[in-house]
Amino acid sequence: MGSVNFKAALCGFAIGAINGLFGGGGGMVAVPALTNILGYGTKQAHATAIFVIAPLCVIALFGYIFGGYIDMQIVVPTAVGSVAGGFLGAGLLDKIPQTAVRVLFIAVMIAAGIRMAVG
């Protein structure tokens, strides 16, 4: 049990570090931590990962407030658009070929990643 707790705590630290630095992406560690260390099923792990990450986003907000990085002229329209898009995306889940979207998504991520890392 001790080693399970230690591994879970270590993953928790990594999830917080990723979310603190990049404002997201902690799910990449949270989902495998929940399935592999705590024995969650895949669907439960994806759902519960949001429960783990949401409070981290609230905490991380202080870094942005402290640094003066909250620009309401950007935040308000993106948040409104994002919520509306979220509903559409959830509704489209069963209607669009997921694998095709995912492959396209991965290609965009690689292109953007290279552009941002070396550009």
Binding site: L10, G12, F13, I15, A17, G20, L21, A60, Y64
Partner: peptide, 13 residues
Amino acid sequence: IIIPALISAALFS
């Protein structure tokens, strides 16, 4: 998981 995650999120933010 959540307690260490909160501490590191605050630190890294």
